[in-house]
């Protein structure tokens, strides 16, 4: 009895390793950053770009609203009258000097909100660092998109495939007119080729959630609303049925995505195998 008891007490020591051994079988969570990037959030704020119209004209009209609204005072703009024979922007004036100091910018996106012509938007590039202060001040030459509408890639930035997608016209909390019920309508003007994105769903009844994959906040937080605020068909037994249908639908879509991805992988592997076998 005494020996067994002692043994049992000593073996209890291994009980503490239960969690450790459980973690051996779990999937690894580490994101291997320098090798691969994790996907960005749809509304991630990153490095700015200055957009151009379809005909190549710059959108910035040098109104300095972005500089005025910037809480960190990181934007410096000087407007100048357009030369009549060779105008830079369709307006009366254009941004002659445009500088953003990335050692001050806090990526709050208030400049994007303030801009009346959607000249300035944010890309999703966030992997950059500087070895001196001069690099951090981006001038207009570095911010304006190129002739294909793609942002310029600077040597100390880590652009990968897909980082510059949805760069322009991609996020605004309100319409340029200030109306919150602007969803479903493309409010931003014509764009130089690259990155134009569907308008997002939001607060009004005209939203198109299937297209954008977003869910209004009211539906997300419905369980926390007062009883009288919850629609009748979402309460009680009927509500349960509705939620079950919703989650079934979600699962189905997830399974479909996984299946597609697996098929894609299989095709890739097959192609790679064929490519290695082919020349030999």
């Amino acid at each position: 009895m005494g020996v067994l008891q002692d043994l049992k007490e000593q073996l209890q020591f291994f009980g503490g390793f239960k969690l450790t051994f459980q973690h051996l079988t779990r999937p690894r969570v580490t994101r291997q950053y320098p090798e691969e990037k994790q996907p960005k959030q749809p509304r991630q704020h990153g490095r700015h770009v200055l957009n151009r119209y379809e005909d190549g004209m710059e959108k910035c009209i040098g109104c300095e609203l972005c500089a005025g609204v910037c809480p960190a005072d990181c934007i410096y703009v000087r407007g100048l009258d357009n030369p009549p024979d060779d105008p830079v922007s369709p307006g009366e004036r254009y941004g002659y000097v445009y500088e953003i100091n990335y050692l001050r910018c806090i990526h709050c996106d208030l400049c994007v909100e303030a801009c009346p012509t959607e000249a300035i938007t944010e890309s999703k590039l966030f992997e950059f660092s500087f070895t001196n202060r001069a690099d951090a001040i981006y001038t207009k030459a570095e911010l304006v998109v190129d002739d294909e509408g793609r942002p310029k890639h600077l040597p100390w930035e880590d652009w990968r495939e897909g980082t510059d997608r949805h760069t322009s016209g991609w996020m605004r909390a309100t319409a340029p007119a200030g109306s919150a019920a602007y969803e479903g309508e493309v409010q931003w003007s014509g764009e130089l080729g690259y990155g134009v994105r569907r308008p997002e769903g939001g607060q009004s009844g005209r939203r198109d959630d299937a297209a954008t994959g977003t869910m209004p906040l009211r539906e997300v937080l419905e369980a926390h609303l007062l009883d009288e605020d919850i629609p009748l068909e979402h309460r009680g037994m009927r509500g349960r049925l509705w939620r079950a249908q919703l989650s079934a639908e979600r699962n189905r879509r997830k399974m479909e995505r996984t299946r597609e991805r697996l098929q894609e992988l299989r095709a890739q592997r097959k192609a790679a195998k064929a490519a290695t076998r082919g020349p030999s």
């Binding site: 990335y102 910018c105 992997e127 950059f128 660092s129 070895t131």
Partner: peptide, 19 residues
């Protein structure tokens, strides 16, 4: 090395470390 951002994402810091 300066890492921009408010705050910098972990990737930005990793980028700064690699720099």
């Amino acid at each position: 090395v300066y890492a921009p951002g408010c705050p910098p994402s972990p990737e930005t810091l990793l980028h700064a470390i690699l720099t």
